[in-house]
Design a protein around this nucleic acid. Sequence first.
RNA 1: UGGGCUGGCCGGGCGACCGCGUCGCCGUCCUCACGGGCGGUGCCGAGGAAGGUCCGGGCUCCACAGGGCAAGGUGGUGGGUAACCCCCACCCGGGGCAACCCGCGGGACAGUGCCACAGAGAACAGACCGCCACUGCCGGCUUCGGCAGGCAGCGGUAAGGGUGAAACGGUGGAGUAAGAGCCCACCAGCGACCCGGGCAACCGGAUCGGCUCGGCAAACCCCACCUGGAGCAAGGUCAAGAAGUCCCGUGCCUGCACGGGACGCGCGCACGUUCGAGGGCUGCUCGCCCGAGUGCGCGGGUAGACCGCUGGAGACUGUCGGUAACGGCAGCCGUAGAUGGAUGGUCGCCCCCCGGCUCGCCGGGGACAGAACCCGGCCUACAGGCCAGCCCAUUCG
Length: 102
Amino acid sequence: MVVHLLVPSADRAHLSLPQAPRVGFVVSKAVGPAVVRNLVKRRLRHLARERTASLSPRDMLVVRALPAAADASYDELARELDRCLAKLGVAAGNAVDVEVLR
RNA sequence: UGGGCUGGCCGGGCGACCGCGUCGCCGUCCUCACGGGCGGUGCCGAGGAAGGUCCGGGCUCCACAGGGCAAGGUGGUGGGUAACCCCCACCCGGGGCAACCCGCGGGACAGUGCCACAGAGAACAGACCGCCACUGCCGGCUUCGGCAGGCAGCGGUAAGGGUGAAACGGUGGAGUAAGAGCCCACCAGCGACCCGGGCAACCGGAUCGGCUCGGCAAACCCCACCUGGAGCAAGGUCAAGAAGUCCCGUGCCUGCACGGGACGCGCGCACGUUCGAGGGCUGCUCGCCCGAGUGCGCGGGUAGACCGCUGGAGACUGUCGGUAACGGCAGCCGUAGAUGGAUGGUCGCCCCCCGGCUCGCCGGGGACAGAACCCGGCCUACAGGCCAGCCCAUUCG
């Protein structure tokens, strides 16, 4: 999977954005038919919800699933998501307007 | 016992925990209130196709002087239904020993058009081989009377061969140089009329006639019948206000700041105000009607909340009517309603399939597929399995 993280910069920080982090998912038709795509989205939604604590309140995260996600188990998706988040340095939370691709 | 045909049904089961969504309840915080935030708790939470979005309807809004021309759909008959391109029964044609299956099943003397390849010839057809008569030439045999034959020309002939999906009916007789529905009998087919059966499609039968007529309408077309437009982002309420108003979100300073949205507004350009822009009659046109604003761009950025929103032509059981589809009556059942869109994860026991073996365990797997206003259908996808009826063959009694 590919993960994008947008952290609002200082000049935009005064804007009154919602106080909770926001996460979006992109699952294209390359992943599979509707049933498979929805299953992947549901799994990612639950996984991401458990990890919102590690995001800062104004972060915006986009998770894009690649075709291999169709065959991945729930645990495999969890490991992959953790790996991507670690690479973004989410724990530090000091990035400003960064987009990191894996 | 083996093979086959048809109809109906199921679509893993039970339980535990964490998470998500609607609703109810409890607590708490904000508010005059409506209502909202947070926490807890309880019930419930995808399908037979939820799918493709192909038909038919309900519901909602718009339209509903009229004339003409198009466009689309349906297509044996009768019935069922809210309706249908659906369902049931029957008829006709075709296939199968049979149960049963298949049919896009009106019209080919209203007109136009097409029939590949093969074949001599394919639509008011056609002479390639063959058959036959005549004419000419050639030789042969001869008991000199003739006899059989070859080649060429011209004509007759649809009986035979051959081609084809299809060659202008079949069998027999009469007839002829040879032949032909040319003529005759019967059969098939066509037409007319009559009798009987059926609601009807149609079926059975009798008489007569003229003597024979290809297929394709999912080619155009003709005939009969049917069809107003858009769709829940339909549509409605809160809902007032006049250069603002209203709504939503976040923050806390609790009525202000910031961000966003709808309606309205402003500016610019273009075309217009009886010399008529634009719009309506929802395919077009004639005609009729409305009519002073309309269109585009920019400020300025694509969904304020709620209702509609799930109980309906409902499912099941029994009974009555009907061959059936279906209908009447009675009883009984009832719980998905998201709105960037909830249904995900872990585990235990059992079930089914595959593999292994130390025969009881181990390992792997469980189809097609995800609600979005709601119904009735059609079509398509589907691991595995269950039930009922019927047919054929064989064996035994």
